[in-house]
Design a protein around this nucleic acid. Structure first.
Ligand SMILES: NC(=O)c1ccc[n+]([C@@H]2O[C@H](COP(=O)([O-])OP(=O)(O)OC[C@H]3O[C@@H](n4cnc5c(N)ncnc54)[C@H](O)[C@@H]3O)[C@@H](O)[C@H]2O)c1
Ligand SMILES: NC(=O)c1ccc[n+]([C@@H]2O[C@H](COP(=O)([O-])OP(=O)(O)OC[C@H]3O[C@@H](n4cnc5c(N)ncnc54)[C@H](O)[C@@H]3O)[C@@H](O)[C@H]2O)c1
Lengths: 215, 215
DNA sequence: AAGGGTTTGTGCTCACAATTACAATCCTTC
DNA sequence: GAAGGATTGTAATTGTGAGCACAAACCCTT
């Protein structure tokens, strides 16, 4: 059975809310409550989960811990994923210093830059490697994910190199419509595009008037 | 007529490709070429544009400069948008130093933090203001967009304050399902969710086997 | 000025995702 | 242990967006 990508995109949301509930000591949650928590309809949640099995109990809801474990297993979050950051500029350093990846099982194990002044520096317990050695190093020490934080003009080059090294998932911050071959997964982080689409709504909805809000 | 949000989300992509073509000196482009450039079907592009008018010429294609101007006007990119950054930590500093906003008409005019050591510092030609003065300052110097780069636990608070100050567009980097009232537009940047959904595909597609790639 | 080669704009169809609605199931209480 | 209240899982329906296909329009060449 083929699961719609939109469904897969929502599952991490569910895991996050469930983690919070779990930390608060909650045992059981209904699709209703989870829905209001996330701004999603209860039916949507139930439908999404039903692609993978029957995890709830009628009349009660879902066991928080059990559902969380199931989702972790489904998404592959029950293991460690190795990541490399390419481009240790302003943004790259913020990424290296971000504490939000490790608790989710995503660990940055290599960092690369092309600037001689930066190569060899120790940042967040990582020695910055020469970008020219990318292939050599990744063949010895393979990673699952590549995080691209280099200038736009060379981003496609870097991505091509990563693909050549067998990296099958790429998170790109570069503002380009990067292309990857079949079987390689690419997600882009595009703050400028987000701003530009919001500008449309700002322009077209009069100040302090009701209008739909989207995230 | 109500235009589908997905369409609005694609328009900035088109403007970006058109800008590149314009800089290369191209006069005319077909939906076919634009499509391959962006990984979108030609029909999709034509359909999207047809919501707003008839900008092309049969047998020729679109005048790059003219279409770019039209899209800029449609999206509200033919003017300046004032932005404030809340939270000048690792990520906030990368945002303040990013050169990709200004050329698109998005200018950061205020920056706030709550850390006494940081308040008063001059970063990228901006004096960091006290987050306690947020309301006071934004009432005197209103902004169109708020960029939220504070820790998750206080992000909803900050967002509520921004809304109270009349900010109607918010770009949030905080990993929470923030809620805003009707008429306020919120976009979230969520690298961790992106990684988590890619993990599903990594886990479920065997190494070096064809599979659909999505961005 | 006519014809051939392109490419747009759009009605139509199809596919798929969201929502609705309800029978089935479970817990709790008396 | 029966009844009542709650909530799931899913079949059926609705809604919507993407792709197809073609007539209309345009350019260029001869
Ligand atoms: N800073 C932000 O908030 C932000 C926001 C959105 C997008 N981005 C994008 O992220 C990317 C990086 O932005 P930044 O602000 O950090 O820029 P930056 O100039 O500070 O950093 C770029 C880094 O890449 C390095 N580099 C250059 N060529 C390289 C190569 N071949 N291999 C490895 N490293 C190389 C440079 O030495 C530099 O350290 C850009 O594409 C930018 O558009 C940044
Ligand atoms: N660094 C990254 O690459 C990254 C990636 C994704 C998401 N995020 C998110 O972005 C946010 C910031 O991340 P960071 O890495 O920069 O963390 P950080 O701790 O370096 O920065 C947070 C900053 O917010 C300031 N702050 C605290 N309370 C404040 C308040 N009430 N008003 C204004 N400022 C306040 C702090 O003083 C600090 O300077 C977090 O929510 C994080 O989850 C960061």
């Amino acid at each position: 059975m083929e699961i719609p990508p939109v469904v897969i995109d929502r599952l991490p949301l569910y895991t996050r809310a469930l983690s919070t509930l779990d930390e608060e000591g909650r045992d059981v949650v209904s699709s209703q409550e989870l829905g209001t928590l996330l701004g999603v309809t209860p039916a949507q949640i139930r439908k999404d989960l039903s692609y993978f099995g029957r995890f709830g109990k009628q009349g009660r809801g879902y066991n928080v811990r059990k559902l969380l474990d199931e989702l972790h297993h489904i998404l592959g979050l029950d293991r460690q994923w190795r990541m490399a950051v390419i481009g240790v500029g302003k943004l790259g350093r913020a990424i290296l210093g971000y504490e939000g990846f490790t608790p989710q099982g995503f660990r940055i194990v290599e960092a690369f830059d092309a600037d001689p002044k930066r190569i060899g520096q120790l940042i967040e317990n990582l020695t910055i490697r020469d970008a020219n050695d990318l292939e050599k190093i990744l063949l010895k020490s393979p990673v699952d994910v590549g995080i691209v934080a280099v200038p736009a003009v060379i981003a496609q080059n870097v991505i091509d190199t990563l693909v050549k090294c067998g990296v099958r998932a790429i998170l790109s911050y570069a503002p380009i419509p990067a292309r990857v071959p079949q079987g390689v997964y690419l997600k882009r982080i595009e703050p400028v595009l987000a701003l530009q689409s919001m500008a449309y709504y700002l322009k077209n909805s009069p100040r302090s008037t009701a209008a739909a809000s989207r995230s």
